[in-house]
Design a protein around this nucleic acid. Structure first.
Length: 272
DNA sequence: GATGAGCGT
């Protein structure tokens, strides 16, 4: 027989209202700030904060074939941003099916990203367009949203040529950084300002990716010292993360190995 | 100041 108390539980596991305390956050973290300049497009969020025109940050194009893709990936989460926080942010859409923050199994600490599933692909896309790159309710950082990858490979055939950009002012966002470069380098694909997960604030450096190697090279010299927002950028080579950007070290490794070998050999020779 | 971040049961 059914337990009386458990009969009419909320459909979603999140239905049970979360006790809303997010670390240092005061009582109502979700109070959406009034739209700065927003005339609400009144599609699905009549009365709410419609963020400034979502900058066209690079996102994976929506997979056309897969009807099932209704989930967004969200990153750059601070540790205190848990399911209930995310859930309440998108609550007004009425179309959130589930929310999940990925945690480390040992420490149970957030890994800084999660997934938001909507009841339709269109709903997910609206959220993606409207929120991505706009300030999160806590005010410190911007939403970093994208389509969740469904295990299928992302269409990413082209190599990236990346540079490191330092000395960024506090107000430089991905969008600002990217536009700074895209104005001169059409192959500029994306820009990312690195965010401190503890504070949600910028670390003052970032990465810019180009599709064209010669533009990467040119940008390295031409853009060094150029103003971005209020500060001159300092540009350097990016440590090889995603290949492409710089030369492989295959030869270097061999040299290192052989010279190590030499050291060993000479050590043997030196020994009595 | 100083080299990310990225897909779960």
């Amino acid at each position: 027989m059914m337990q009386p108390g458990a009969g009419g539980v909320a459909p979603s596991a999140l239905g049970q209202q979360p006790a809303q305390q997010y670390g240092q956050q005061p009582a109502q973290p979700y109070m959406m700030m009034p739209p700065p300049t927003a005339q609400a497009p009144a599609m699905w969020a009549p009365q709410s904060h419609v963020a400034p025109p979502a900058p066209q940050l690079p996102q994976h194009s929506q997979p056309a074939s897969a009807d099932e893709v209704r989930t967004l990936w969200i990153g750059d989460l601070q540790y205190w941003m848990e399911e209930n926080y995310l859930y309440n942010i998108f609550l007004h859409t009425g179309e959130v099916v589930s929310v999940k923050v990925i945690r480390n199994k040992q420490t149970c600490q957030s890994e800084g990203y999660g997934f938001i599933e909507f009841n339709s692909r269109a709903a997910a896309e609206r959220v993606l367009q409207a929120f991505n790159g706009t300030p999160m309710p806590n005010g410190a950082q911007n939403f970093r949203l994208n389509w969740a990858s469904t295990g299928e490979k992302r269409s990413d055939d082209t190599p990236d040529y990346t540079i490191f950009v330092g000395d960024l002012a506090a107000d430089v966002t991905d969008y600002v950084l990217q536009e700074t470069f895209r104005a001169r380098y059409p192959s500029c694909k994306s820009a990312k300002v690195v965010i401190d997960r503890l504070t949600g604030r910028t670390k003052g450096y970032g990465f810019v990716k180009f599709g064209d190697e010669s533009e990467q090279m040119r940008a390295m010299t031409e853009m060094n010292g150029v103003l971005c927002s209020t500060r001159p950028m300092r540009i350097g080579p990016a440590a090889n993360k995603n290949a492409g950007g710089s030369q492989q070290y295959s030869n270097g490794c061999q040299e290192a190995l052989s010279s190590k070998g030499q050291i060993l050999i000479s050590a043997e020779m030196v020994s009595p």
